[in-house]
Amino acid sequence: MKEIRFLANTKQKSIENGVTTWSSPSNIALVKYWGKRKEQIPENTSISFTLNQCKTITNLTYTKKEDNLNFSFDVFLDGEKQDDFKPKIEVFFNRITPYLSFLKDFHFKIETKNTFPHSSGIASSASGMSALAACLMSIDKELNPEMNSQFILQKTSFLARLGSGSACRSLEGDLVVWGEHKSIVNSSNLFGVKFPFNTHNNFKNYQDTILLVDKGEKQVSSTIGHNLMHNHPFSQQRFVQANQNLEKITAILQNGNLDEFISLVESEALTLHAMMMSSMPYFILMKPNTLEIINKIWAFRKATNSKVCFTLDAGANVHVLYPESEKDSVLQFIKNELVVYCQNGHYICDNIGKGLEQL
Rank of each mutant, 00 (worst) to 15 (best):
A134C: 01
C135Q: 03
L136Y: 11
M137H: 00
M137N: 03
I139H: 02
I139M: 00
K141T: 11
K141I: 06
E142V: 12
E142R: 14
E142I: 10
E142Y: 07
N144D: 09
N144F: 02
N144W: 01
P145F: 04
P145W: 02
P145M: 07
E146M: 15
E146N: 15
M147A: 15
M147T: 11
N148K: 13
N148D: 14
S149D: 15
S149I: 15
S149C: 13
S149G: 12
Q150S: 15
F151C: 07
F151D: 06
F151E: 06
I152K: 02
L153H: 02
Q154T: 10
T156E: 01
T156G: 09
T156F: 00
T156M: 01
S157T: 15
F158P: 04
A160M: 01
A160G: 02
R161E: 05
R161Y: 10
L162N: 05
G163A: 11
S164E: 05
A167F: 05
A167N: 05
C168Q: 04
C168L: 04
R169A: 06
R169Y: 08
S170T: 12
L171P: 01
E172I: 10
G173T: 00
D174M: 15
L175N: 08
L175V: 12
L175T: 04
V176I: 06
V176F: 00
V177E: 05
V177K: 05
G179K: 13
G179Q: 12
E180H: 11
E180Q: 14
S183C: 13
S183Y: 10
S183T: 13
S183D: 13
V185F: 12
V185Y: 03
N186D: 15
S187I: 08
S187P: 09
S187G: 11
S188C: 06
L190Q: 10
L190V: 03
G192T: 03
G192H: 06
V193Y: 00
V193P: 07
V193T: 11
K194F: 07
F195T: 09
P196N: 08
F197G: 09
N198S: 13
H200I: 07
H200W: 09
N202A: 08
F203E: 02
K204R: 15
N205Y: 09
N205P: 06
Y206K: 13
Y206I: 15
Y206Q: 14
Y206W: 10
Q207V: 14
D208Q: 06
D208P: 02
D208S: 07
T209C: 02
T209S: 13
I210D: 14
L211R: 07
L212H: 03
L212D: 05
V213K: 04
